[in-house]
Design a protein around this nucleic acid. Structure first.
Length: 209
DNA sequence: CTACCGATTGACT
DNA sequence: GTCAATCGGTAGA
């Protein structure tokens, strides 16, 4: 059986309203190639941070050293640090003043042993459930801040061709308020596969209501 | 140099 | 469910 191809999603995928990008990222693969090997995860939880009217989006501070990447081309990586941990976003929508989709959780697909080694954990559910956990499992750090995700090198997103194509159904998609934000906390900008065990967050925010 | 922040995590009741 | 440790990154003196 042939190994499925892992081609990076094109810039067009990212160059749309960030809510649509965040929603359609569900089911895509996160691919990380490194010296130590390859890790692949299926995205099961994302959040959108809007270019306007969203006080939780880092872009509200305007472009500065820390936020420069979020104002980059769609398909750029935006990595920030929170509580001494990294979180990974993909920049969307070329038209706005800065917006990005945060990847909050992936289901491990390939390279589990490497993820276990990087995380110093063996439990499958603890490897990449949560934005900082997945960054540790995939060795994503600030070197990917400003990274071009469309060139297919080191870190990119890809369609899940091996599982029935781009529209492979992994469950019912649901939106909820975002996790952890201290402002704009009611906007339903978090997207998940309902009842998927690899989704992070409190139990009542992991299923269809 | 010190001070402060936090879109989190892991340990605990 | 609660809560404190966490430390990289940045701003300011």
């Amino acid at each position: 059986m042939t190994s499925p191809t892992l081609d990076p999603l094109p810039r067009d995928f990212y160059d749309r309203d960030v809510r649509q990008v965040a929603r359609e990222m569900l089911g895509k693969l996160l691919v990380r190639r490194s010296r130590d090997g390859i890790t692949v995860g299926r995205i099961v939880e994302t959040e959108a941070y809007l270019p306007e009217g969203d006080s939780a989006c880092h872009a509200v501070a305007g472009p500065n050293r820390k936020t420069a990447a979020i104002f980059g081309l769609p398909g750029t990586g935006y990595v920030y640090v929170i509580h001494a941990r990294h979180c990974f976003n993909a920049v969307a929508d070329a038209s706005g003043v800065g917006c990005a989709a945060l990847i909050r959780a992936v289901e491990p697909v390939r390279g589990v042993a490497l993820m276990q080694k990087r995380r110093q954990r063996v439990e499958l559910l603890d490897l990449a459930r949560g934005p900082a956990r997945l960054c540790e499992a995939f060795a994503i750090d600030r070197t990917f801040n400003g990274w071009d995700l469309t060139i297919g090198r080191s870190l990119f997103l890809a369609d899940d061709e091996g599982n029935g194509g781009p529209n492979y159904e992994l469950g019912v998609q649901v939106s909820t308020p975002r996790i952890g934000v201290t402002s704009a906390k009611d906007l339903p900008l978090r997207y998940i596969f309902a009842d998927n065990q690899y989704v992070s967050g409190p139990k009542h925010l992991r299923s269809r209501n």
